[in-house]
Amino acid sequence: MMKRSIRVTAGVGLALGAAAPLLAQEIRARGGSTVTVGARIQAQYEASSVDGTASSFFIRRAWVTMDGKLNDLVGARAQFNIDGASVLEAYLELTPSEALEIQIGQFKKGMSYFWLVPNAWLPVIERDARVTGVDHCPGVGSVCSFGRLTGALGLDNYEPGLLAQGRVSERFGYRFTLTNGEGIGNKDVNHGKSASGQLSLFPAGNTRVSAYFALDETLNMQGETMSVPAYGAEVEIGTWLDGPHLIANGLRGRNWKLNDDAKFSAFQLMAFWYLPMAPESRFAAIEPMLRVSWVDSGAENPDKVTGTVITPGVMVYFVGRNGISTNVDFYSSGDRSDWSLKVQAFAFF
């Protein structure tokens, strides 16, 4: 199952070579092809500081992924959510070389690696750092965070279209998408298309520097089609399952859900430290983490809103990427302060 994730990550320069513990099952299929079947279940508990908001247990994800391989050139993926059977990814994949991989179908278009990294690898439980009961950020709602802005404005989500990515050399990789701009499974409402791209440089070792952009098709406040630009940069030092790891993002774009002229700015820093346990230990590893996110929503005075999220957490691994993660998202903006406790059990097989 993780071969596909490794290819996706290679487009931005990371090799997730330790993916084997996810234990997906490969079976023979008709025509001499093979199908690799895997699943993930993530059960979550969430509690909020907001008065009148109940704490709850729920199934955050229950996904099945099937990767088909016809030969060295042609493959395919079907990934769906068991709860409601919604299709997340479904595409034909052509891989003539490491320098070029083409996907035709529905995929995660993701400008930044923050949204492209599989949730199997990310001990941050909620990328948008939501706090249940808080509907505060102008235009996009919820909390003002990096993940909330990119997700709610459609910069990082699943959409049908075309994708091209590859690793041209040891120093350079790329990823480009052309999609409908209307979200999962939705047909386009006009002839316009949304474009996004990422260019990555690898100056040394496990260091990556990326620039990314989006020209997203949407409707303005008057119901007219317009292209909404966004651009940003990302720096990564280190890699998964190997000691300290830093990922920093900066992004600027238009908060079109607020108004046609609102320009937001966002910054995020994530730090992880993967610590393997002794062979005789009951646990495989422990990984403390910290996220700091800051956003200016683009609202003008007197409605100007900025928000800060600080998320300490820790992931305990039992085997491979299976384990339990705990995060506390602390949100502050002006004179308000809220928090959310999240505990999630990860299971991949």
Rank of each mutant, 00 (worst) to 15 (best):
F202C: 06
Y274R: 00
N81I: 03
T9K: 14
D216G: 13
Q42R: 09
Q165W: 02
N206F: 13
E280F: 08
Y274Q: 08
G183T: 13
T207A: 12
F58G: 13
F146Y: 14
A120G: 07
M289R: 14
P312E: 02
Q42S: 02
T308W: 07
G334I: 08
V189K: 10
E217R: 13
A211V: 15
P229Q: 12
V74S: 05
R175G: 13
D260G: 01
T95K: 12
L14T: 11
D303S: 10
K108S: 11
P96I: 05
S86V: 10
T239V: 09
E234M: 06
G32V: 06
L92F: 08
V292F: 04
G17H: 14
D67A: 04
V292D: 01
G243M: 03
F146C: 02
F176E: 02
L275N: 07
G133W: 07
Y174D: 11
Y212G: 12
F283M: 14
T36C: 04
A230F: 02
P21M: 07
T311W: 04
F264H: 06
D216R: 15
A78G: 01
G139M: 07
P302I: 07
S337Y: 10
M226I: 13
T207Q: 09
G68V: 03
W115E: 15
R4Y: 11
